[in-house]
Design a protein around this nucleic acid. Structure first.
Lengths: 376, 376
DNA sequence: CCGGTTTCTGAAAGCGGTTTCATTATATGC
DNA sequence: GCATATAATGAAACCGCTTTCAGAAACCGG
């Protein structure tokens, strides 16, 4: 008696039978893909409503030869910034016909696996790659079936991409510090190269922007002021290294008065470390981060906003656009099936979009009160 | 010439033709679902390898009547605590045959939509609901097709669930403060009830635990010490409210010496606010959070660890187990198709698992140096 | 009122797999 | 050595939907 009457899934046949028509007709009113007389349309629609019929996504996919699925390969949980980007992506697909499957890369093994297995037309209609620069194998895998691909937060000549200008952002951060009178500015960042090919390069580019800004201001670049955490790899707790760097810097005989961190997450570590040794931020030490993750606001951290969420949104939208262009193109093909080989020609028209980077002023930076030789 | 030769997807027919066998045979070696002679098996396998054949997931799904997909309905997957849980869930399914589709709820509309549309056997084989207590409609929707369901971080008598004991956790937090000599302990939390039915109740339960702990220690409950942010709703920036609460509390004529926040995120706001008015944590104010998100470690925040990730893992595993039980059961049915109605009887055997809550001692709490009437 | 369109509809053939059923080849038993 | 169980395989049906193809019905000009 406690048997919850399990509802059966109604199929298109049930509807057809009930309406006294062929399944083809039902299909036609579902997709209004061909003229159906008003009278039968009404009958069918009633049957659909009464039976509460929803076509099986899978059958549909199989029949249409589309998957209505977007694959997103992303080093998902490793850093807050990825989550923000993902949020932008998810938001776009929520309102579309596409399902989004997130493939979370947390190891080199997975990375290779996903790049090889996922970009197949029977798995997805398009691929978004976040924060990973495809290597040669990846490129092959991605191109094999000519699926539309968009890179978010990375760049490759052969694929659409949405990225930010890290050099510019970093320069803005450092310029801000310079304008505040700082000239002893240190850099703390992640590794410059990395097996997984992601996040790494951004640190490198930010370092480059840092150097550039110094040079423009005629401040000598000092090797000791650059701390790069080569263990900032997957899943590692970067906190300790960053703290160690900070302590080391601040205890040196020429401590910096400001630190530019390559990410907000690292900036937080810097602030923690500074406080732990009794230094006040920003009075004793100015700190600038990068990313403007949600956290930054709560920490009152001055940082560089790189429109994380927007980048995800733009990437997703770009993919959607590509998808719809392709589908109209394939319709054209039907009428004139001649120019097969021309399709690929728009490989030329690869789109590379830049997302703006802006300084967000908060309370972690202040004028330099540099005492040239601090008493220790 | 720049035409990247787009590979064609090879089908089971291609393989069959190449191997000179019927598709049925290929299918059999793929799933070894029936005896195949070693010789033909080898031939087929070779063909598979040579053609690099991977069966189409969709065709398979359709044919098997399974989707090999798990739906995960989760609010704001960007909130750190949800991300942690999701991380646990994702980890489990990565190693399974199932794809995971995440449905991100950010509005009441979406919530209703997802609960109505997603739990259908043609969309997924099972559902994980995170941090949302199903209402009556939801329950109907979830039960309609008798899909296996697991709730993570919520509770309902009719569904499996993984949850934590918020009262207990809160009590541990408050007891810790009491043991440190505090007796002016304030509570800052999110709303106690909410249209979306999630997150709210956890604040309420933590408040309950707070009250209980006070009572046990014979400390009078004080209404002014309870600050509940009813705007901690969708997308709102809770930071400001929390800060306002903190300032208000600390500027009152009987400021607390300790604050227990219902989440780490809010605890961070408290710490920020305290610092902004020149108070030191923990010297002038002790702060305890809840959740033990990654952040907490970096903030040296004393908090309650509620095994966020573990809860996701357990939930996912439980669903997987249910799934495999169901599939073996349905096999049994094949042989003796009598006891259809008995299957539902194990609705009795709903599993409710609790995940441990533990105090994590860090540096945001200290002994109370209460000056009974602080000079202001 | 008739040939020729146009509009509407049903039967049937896919989509790419799995599975049943029937058939043939091979073993086994007596 | 023959009846019979068993193993191995192919042909065909099926999963639920879409789409082609072809036929029926309605429409139209002359």
């Amino acid at each position: 008696m406690k048997n919850t009457a399990t509802a059966q899934i109604t199929t298109i046949h049930d509807v057809a039978k009930r309406a006294g028509v062929a399944t083809a007709t039902v299909s036609r009113v579902l997709n209004n893909t061909a003229p159906v007389s008003d009278s039968t349309r009404k009958i069918v629609q009633t049957a659909i409503d009464e039976l509460n019929f929803v076509p099986s996504p899978n059958a549909r996919k199989l029949s249409w030869g589309k998957t209505f699925t977007i694959a997103c390969i992303v080093p998902f949980f490793t850093r807050p910034s990825f989550v923000e980007r993902l949020r932008g992506i998810v938001g776009v697909f929520e309102d579309s016909d596409y399902d989004l499957i997130v493939y979370n890369v947390e190891s080199a093994r997975r990375r290779a696996q996903y790049f090889n297995e996922v970009p197949r037309p029977d798995r997805c209609d398009g691929v978004i790659v976040v924060s990973m620069t495809p290597n040669d194998n990846d490129v092959n895998a991605l191109k094999r079936f000519n699926l539309p691909v968009v890179l978010v937060d990375s760049h490759h000549p052969q694929f659409h991409s949405i990225s930010e200008n890290s050099e510019e952002g970093a320069a803005k951060a450092v310029n801000h510090l310079i304008e505040l009178g700082h000239n002893k500015i240190a850099f703390i960042g992640g590794p410059l190269k990395d097996t997984l090919n992601f996040e790494a390069t951004s640190s490198a580019r930010r370092l480059k922007g840092y150097k550039q800004a110094l040079q423009n201001a005629n401040i000598a670049f000092k090797d000791d002021y650059v701390c790069v955490d080569n263990n900032f790899a997957i899943g590692s707790k970067n906190g300790n290294t960053v703290k160690a760097f900070t302590l080391q810097l601040m205890r040196s005989n020429r401590p910096p008065t400001a630190i530019f961190a390559a990410s907000d997450f690292q900036a937080m570590g810097v602030m923690q470390a500074a406080r732990s040794m009794g230094l006040r931020v920003p009075e004793d030490l100015s700190v600038v981060g990068y990313d403007d993750i949600e956290l930054a606001e709560h920490l009152s951290l001055t940082t560089i906003n790189q429109s994380l969420r927007l980048s995800g949104e733009r990437g997703a939208t770009l993919l959607l656009e590509t998808l719809s262009i392709l589908s109209t193109e394939s319709k054209k093909e039907n009428s004139s099936l001649s120019h097969q080989s021309f399709i690929d020609d728009d490989a030329e028209k690869v789109i590379h979009e830049k997302v703006p980077v802006d300084l967000v002023l908060r309370a972690s930076t202040a004028h330099s009160l540099d005492r040239q030789h601090p008493v220790i």
